[in-house]
């Protein structure tokens, strides 16, 4: 705990940064790649294969996705524990967003743990590569479609709202008007990303 206290500033800043780069960037890539499923199984499988041909893929995934994600998650859960939420008493818009950011953190954590295990880690150990057919088997069941949709909403909300607070935490948006504009941009981003993600889910469920 002494390390966390001494390097509080650096750790908090890294926590904020990893949410955007690389995790946020990966989320965007992932949702866009999935949306190719709307073009049919071949279009999707082609995309997946293109990624699987990247040299040292496993190392790239570990260094640029798994480690930053684990760092962001473990610290983030500690930060969730540190907050004492009071939305019932102070019913302000930003307070609800603060609360939802923590709720979606936990939902996304549970969902990503499940999703990464079934769709990537478990598959990798079994030596089976991901394909349209595999995802279709899962997503054609209404229950799993709903689980994936909830996971999508949570992840996209956490990213969009996180981007808004990122802009404040790094001193980019300072005045109330700049913050308000950023809020509008992030709300639009949330809608667009939900649409792209849903398109991917529908494509894979069909």
């Amino acid at each position: 705990m002494g390390f966390i206290k001494n390097y509080n500033f650096l750790i908090r800043k890294l926590h904020s940064l990893t949410g955007l780069i690389p995790i946020g960037v990966f989320l965007l890539e992932h949702l866009i790649t999935n949306s190719f499923a709307l073009g049919g199984p071949e279009a999707y499988n082609q995309r997946v294969e293109a990624f699987q041909n990247i040299p040292f893929l496993v190392w790239i995934e570990i260094i640029f996705i798994a480690i930053p994600l684990a760092f962001h998650t473990i610290l983030g859960l500690y930060y969730v524990y540190l907050a004492q939420n009071n939305v019932l008493q102070y019913k302000y818009y930003r307070n609800y967003m603060f609360y939802l950011q923590r709720v979606t953190a936990i939902v996304t954590f549970v969902y990503v743990a499940y999703h990464a295990y079934t769709a990537r880690i478990g598959r990798a150990f079994a030596g089976i590569e991901i394909s349209y057919e595999f995802m279709n088997n899962i997503l054609s069941q209404p229950l799993f479609f709903i689980i994936y949709f909830i996971g999508l909403l949570a992840a996209v909300f956490h990213f969009s709202n996180g981007l808004y607070t990122f802009a404040i935490s790094w001193g980019i948006t300072i005045g109330p008007k700049a913050q308000k504009t950023m809020q509008t941009i992030c709300t639009i981003l949330f809608i667009i990303l939900t649409a792209i993600g849903t398109a991917g889910l529908i494509g894979l469920a069909a």
């Binding site: 206290k5 001494n6 509080n8 500033f9 908090r12 800043k13 904020s16 930060y79 540190l82 907050a83 009071n86 102070y90 302000y92 930003r94 307070n95 967003m97 603060f98 950011q101 808004y164 607070t165 404040i168 935490s169």
Partner: peptide, 13 residues
């Protein structure tokens, strides 16, 4: 330092 500005969670209450 510890408990400094980065501990603000932007709830803006």
């Amino acid at each position: 330092g510890d408990g400094g500005i980065t501990d603000c969670g932007n709830a803006q209450n």
